[in-house]
Design a protein around this nucleic acid. Structure first.
Length: 238
DNA sequence: AAGCACGCCAACCGCGGCCTC
DNA sequence: GGAGGCCGCGGTTGGCGTGCT
């Protein structure tokens, strides 16, 4: 048996949203909160499918959205997080307050991809184009320090020992307190498939990396650290 | 001024994962 | 345990705006 359609397509509007539809959606969510997207359109008097409502709210109507151009800092953050996480736009968006996954995805495809290509960097692998290294350390220090589009520094190095999480922030200064990550990408240390972190776990990226809590951090504790650490166990931090 | 090409971005689509029964 | 429902994610599409010829 196939999946039932998410909505009755014959009776739903598609395409651009009108001002009236936006107003209805905003008013409904203000009154009742987010959630129950499937039933929301009917309850709000909208001829839209729930997914469409959710997308419209998350990507456009949410009051905490930051509209406008991306800053250089945001550019570099996106590049860093993409090198860590790949096309996990929602995770990347979670680290950029006021930005949505869709916005970042679009921005990546239209701007940053080209920017990296002009630097001679493969936007998929974050390695220099035409280089087939097997174990390359990616340093963003140069890229972050120089805003004049100089290429990020890539170099071959011997594998490094990952510091024990228990050592992080205990006496030793953190190597990456401001997420100025200096990353070494290598093969996972075992063959088990890496399970993604459950979003419901509610552990932010800073906490998952064992970093000091950021101001926007809403994590209630560090209890999720262990599980989240496992998620990034294939990524070693120097 | 008109036609075309290209870039941008909002929105759609299909799939996978989680949850409930 | 598995079937069905819902939510969220990532890839893709299509319309609009802008610049170029």
């Amino acid at each position: 048996m196939g999946r039932s359609p998410c909505c009755e397509k014959a009776h739903t509007n598609k395409g651009a949203w009108t001002k009236e539809e936006d107003d209805r959606l905003i008013a409904y969510i203000k009154a009742h909160g987010e959630g129950c997207w499937r039933s929301l359109p009917k309850a709000a008097g909208l001829l839209r499918c729930g997914k469409s409502c959710r997308l419209r709210w998350i990507n456009y109507l949410r009051p905490d959205l930051k509209r406008g151009n991306f800053t250089e800092e945001e550019d570099e953050l996106i590049i860093k997080f993409h090198s860590l996480l790949g096309n996990k736009w929602s995770l990347i968006a979670g680290r950029l307050p006021g930005r949505t996954d869709n916005e970042i995805k679009n921005y990546w495809n239209t701007h940053i991809r080209r920017k990296l290509l002009s630097r001679g960097i493969d936007p998929v692998t974050h390695r220099p184009i035409n280089e087939n290294a097997s174990n390359i350390t990616i340093s963003f220090e140069a890229a972050a320090a120089t805003r004049d589009d100089k290429a990020a520094v890539f170099r071959r190095e011997e594998p490094k020992v990952t510091p024990e999480p228990a050592d992080w922030g205990q006496g030793k200064p953190l190597k990456c307190p401001d997420l100025n990550l200096d990353l070494c990408i290598s093969l996972p240390s075992h063959e088990e498939p890496v399970k993604p972190v459950k979003r419901e776990a509610g552990v932010c990226f800073s906490c998952s990396l064992g970093l000091p809590k950021s101001t926007e951090c809403k994590c209630s504790s560090f209890l999720g650290l262990r599980a989240a650490m496992l998620d990034f166990r294939s990524l070693e931090m120097k």
